[in-house]
Simulated assay, not measured.
Amino acid sequence: MKSALSGEAQRLGFVAFGVADAAPVPQRAERLEQWLGDGRHGAMEWMEARKDQRAEPQALWPEARSVIALGMSYAPAHDPLALANAPDRGRISVYAQGGDYHDTVKKALKSLARWLIAEAARRGLGDVAVKVFVDTAPVMEKPLGEAAGLGWQGKHTNLVSRTHGSWLFLGSIYTTLDLPPDAPHSPHCGSCNRCLVACPTDAFPAPGQLDARRCISYLTIEHKGPIPHEFRAAIGNRIYGCDDCLAVCPWNSFADAAAANLAFLPRAELAGPKLAELLALDDAGFRSLFAGSPIKRIGRNRFIRNCLIAAGNSGDLNLVGQVEQLLDDPDPVVADAAIWALQRLSESRNISHEDTRMGEDGAGAVRRSDTVV
């Protein structure tokens, strides 16, 4: 039964498959409790609101006996860091450049669940109940994926597969059917700490620990208010999420872009959008551009806030006019970001003018050097 289930999962587009026991694991609950107790979930109150159900599958659904853990690839064909030196463009996390993974993964999960119920009945295994989850319920997909043998949680806390790297969308099926569990995956990070070093905001207090309050993905997606000033410069031109800790992981060199689901191929307009065009979006334009994209859920105001931070970091004086138009935006968070961006661009303008003046005056250039020394 399990072998047949794995084959059907592969047919539906899943590249990773494993089974974990739904029984409680005390260490899992303890780690979650510690993380929440330290406040590292930031403003994600929903993480704490249903922590007991999140900690263990049977706390969410007592009848569950097995957890079927699944992964669908979105491995990119391009370098996720390619736009790091293109300040006039916004960087969108790889996972959000294509279609909304919630829709694609959940559709496949439901198809697999229906197949499981029918196949169990055909084999005389009785009535089998199932529940499917993808990122919108109190489910700890990464620890369950590790327990099911899909991979291990790396030092950046993301699941790492030896075959697919970290480019996996995770989903799970809770079922009343007893399936033989797979062995948990052992860690293979070794002494490598590239992901920890690559983080622009030092969001990892220690290997295997993440402080979401410092994470660019959290700040640009989950955080609703003004982005703290201490992180604004480090955000650079990232306007939705951050791939740095994933992109530098050596295991991702084994990921095959050909295994990625076609639904997640990047849309041309999202692979490297110009900040000038994004700053001009009103609510209708935002909704139109990001229809069918996970970006749509954060709304126009939060997105424009992110674009203004990127504009301020760009040093592109051509953006001054558009930034100025957002100074009186009805949303105070947007207006705050516009004020900051304009100040940053003004500093860039002053530096540019100073460089020009010094270049015309040899003596001035010497004096400036003396000052720097």
Results as ranks from 00 to 15, higher is better:
Lys2Cys: 11
Ser3Ile: 12
Gln10Gly: 15
Val25His: 08
Gln27Trp: 06
Trp35Ile: 06
Trp35Val: 07
Met47Asn: 09
Met47Leu: 14
Ala49Leu: 12
Glu56Trp: 04
Pro57Arg: 10
Tyr74Lys: 08
Ala77Val: 13
Pro80Arg: 02
Ala86Asn: 00
Arg89Ser: 02
Ile92His: 00
Val94Thr: 13
Gln97Asp: 05
Gly98Asp: 01
Gly99Ser: 12
His102Lys: 12
Thr104Cys: 05
Thr104Tyr: 02
Ala108Pro: 01
Ala108Gly: 05
Lys110Arg: 14
Ser111Thr: 07
Ala113Pro: 06
Trp115Phe: 08
Glu119Thr: 11
Ala120Leu: 06
Arg122Tyr: 07
Arg122Met: 09
Arg123His: 12
Gly124Pro: 05
Pro138Thr: 10
Glu141Trp: 01
Ala147Arg: 14
Ala148Thr: 07
Lys155Tyr: 10
Thr157Lys: 02
Thr157Ile: 04
Asn158Gly: 09
Val160Cys: 08
Val160Pro: 00
Ser161Ile: 02
His164Val: 04
Trp167Met: 07
Trp167Glu: 03
Phe169Trp: 10
Thr176Val: 06
Leu179Val: 11
Ser186Cys: 08
Ser191His: 13
Arg194Ala: 12
Val197Asn: 09
Val197Pro: 03
Asp202Cys: 09
Ala203Asp: 01
Pro205Leu: 12
Ala206Phe: 08
Pro207Cys: 12
Pro207Lys: 13
Gln209Ser: 14
Asp211Pro: 05
Asp211Ile: 05
Cys215Ala: 11
Ser217Pro: 02
Ile221Phe: 08
Pro226Asp: 13
Pro226Phe: 03
Pro228Met: 10
Glu230Phe: 04
Phe231Cys: 05
Arg232Tyr: 05
Ala233Ser: 09
Ala233Ile: 04
Arg238Asp: 00
Arg238Tyr: 01
Tyr240Val: 09
Gly241Gln: 07
Cys245Phe: 02
Ala247Val: 01
Pro250Ala: 08
Asn252Trp: 01
Ser253Tyr: 02
Ala257Leu: 09
Ala259Glu: 13
Leu265Lys: 15
Ala268Thr: 14
Gly272Arg: 09
Gly272Cys: 07
Lys274Trp: 06
Ala276Thr: 12
Leu279Glu: 03
Asp283Gly: 11
Gly285His: 13
Arg287Ser: 10
Arg287Trp: 04
Phe290Leu: 11
Ala291Gln: 11
Arg297Leu: 10
Ile298Cys: 03
Ile298Arg: 12
Gly299Val: 07
Arg302Asn: 14
Arg302Ile: 10
Ile304Ala: 02
Ile309Glu: 01
Ala311Leu: 04
Ala311Asn: 04
Gly312Met: 05
Asn313Thr: 03
Gln322Thr: 08
Asp329Glu: 14
Asp331Ser: 13
Pro332Asp: 07
Asp336Ile: 05
Asp336Thr: 15
Leu345His: 06
Ile351Phe: 08
Asp355Leu: 15
Thr356Asp: 12
Met358Lys: 13
Gly359Ser: 14
Ala365Thr: 11
Val366Lys: 12
Arg368Leu: 12
Asp370Arg: 15
Asp370Ile: 15
Asp370Met: 15
